[in-house]
Design a binder for these strands. Structure first.
Lengths: 224, 224
DNA sequence: TTCATAGTTCGATGCTAGCCGAAGCATTCC
DNA sequence: GGAATGCTTCGGCTAGCATCGAACTATGAA
């Protein structure tokens, strides 16, 4: 069972360290987990067997990375649940502040900016929200067309909802997923407001100076 | 840590049983997990402490249900990862063959017959299916009206989808939920093709001789 | 070659947590 | 009231697994 793998504290620490998207060596992971290399080796073998991490041999190092974006997604959601129950681990969220601020979750924006965007859309009545369900309003359609040239037709998809609440790992609140979440992220990139960090495997999203301004104009600045 | 809670086999079985959305009593969950009531009580206290399940007292029973759609979402994703890694669970399903064959899941048909019905509907193109999402086709509407006198208006509901894929506990595959799943089960009962087992608390559904024939005529016999 | 570093395997140890029997509340039925 | 059912608490037992020391392999450097 996969959950049992994640359940052990040492392994959970390793996986959390890998959530940044970087690949780490076995020794580094041992330090992160606070165990000896022998113990770490045993854990890593189990994680590999469970399909959660993938090794890459390079010289006399063994680099490990998360096997899959799906794995990262599940880990974040688990952390979100844990946070809500007050069962937060001592070390919360990503250490890197950029990762906490803006990052990619599958194909949409997560982190503080992602959460703030959804908050702002709700308060501007661009979407209506009922628990898990989020619906785009006509006001929202006009807003998207006017400011971002996103039309409702672009959002239609046979097997994916337009809006979906996605639990944010670091912020412990929801951000916007679904085809709209993806379309927004795509547009931000096209407009050069933001770009994924070029480092391989990194999930950080960097906003440009101008992009940040435009974003704030549409979805509020710090305050809200 | 939440993952540790899900990691234990007994608790995982309980949570899997609750994935149907139905609330189950502590004793039922003990049976599902294959442990004694005392042990189950301890597990349920932990799950409740972790915010994964919520109790509801009713007479001398304690019903438990999943605390939140987010919890169900995470559990499904975990199951997905586990399945991908070929780590399918060993201890599986109900011992009673009748329960495995046909039972009630909330208000619709589950078990082998439920799974077979959905399979047949897909291959007959009565519904179109993509992953979790299921859509009724016009062919399907005609079929339902002609053979079962179920009209699209009967299926409309503000908050509930017409079709929904529901993970089948025993078969580990999906059967049909949603208003259509409920309407079908209701019609089967009205037509006296099937009836819920009169034993209190039983979730078994018994098909009559004639009912089984009619069912097979519409949704295929053994083969598919 | 010899040495140093990275990582794994093996064996022994110790702690955790799941498990059940027995007993104790709580609720409902007769 | 008494009996039956649903569920929980307590105590002791046991198995599993995480942990580490020591020894072993492999790569790279001097």
């Amino acid at each position: 069972m996969v959950a049992a793998l994640v359940g052990d504290p040492a392994r959970a620490n390793m996986l959390t360290a890998l959530l940044s998207g970087r690949a780490l060596t076995a020794t580094e992971l041992a330090q992160e987990a606070g165990v000896t290399p022998q113990t770490a080796s045993s854990h890593l073998a189990k994680l590999e067997g469970g399909g959660l991490v993938e090794p890459e041999k390079q010289g006399r190092h063994r680099y490990y990375r998360l096997a899959d974006p799906d794995v990262a997604d599940v880990l974040e959601k688990l952390a979100g649940l844990a946070a809500r129950a007050g069962h937060m681990r001592v070390r919360t969220g990503p250490k890197e502040p950029e990762l906490r601020r803006a990052r990619i979750c599958y194909d949409h924006l997560a982190g503080d900016l992602g959460v703030r965007m959804l908050d702002s859309m709700v308060s501007q009545k661009l979407v209506r929200r009922r628990k898990q369900e989020i619906l785009l309003t006509t006001d929202g359609e006009h807003f998207l067309a006017k400011h971002l040239r996103i039309s409702p037709e672009m959002l239609a998809h046979p097997r994916r909802p337009v809006c979906k609440a996605c639990l944010d790992w670091s912020a412990r609140r929801h951000h916007l997923a679904g085809t709209l979440g993806a379309a927004l992220m795509k547009r931000f990139t096209e407009l050069k407001w933001a770009a994924r960090d070029p480092a391989p495997g990194s999930r950080v999203v960097n906003f440009s100076r101008a992009g940040e301004k435009h974003f704030a104009a549409l979805f509020g600045s710090e305050g809200d």
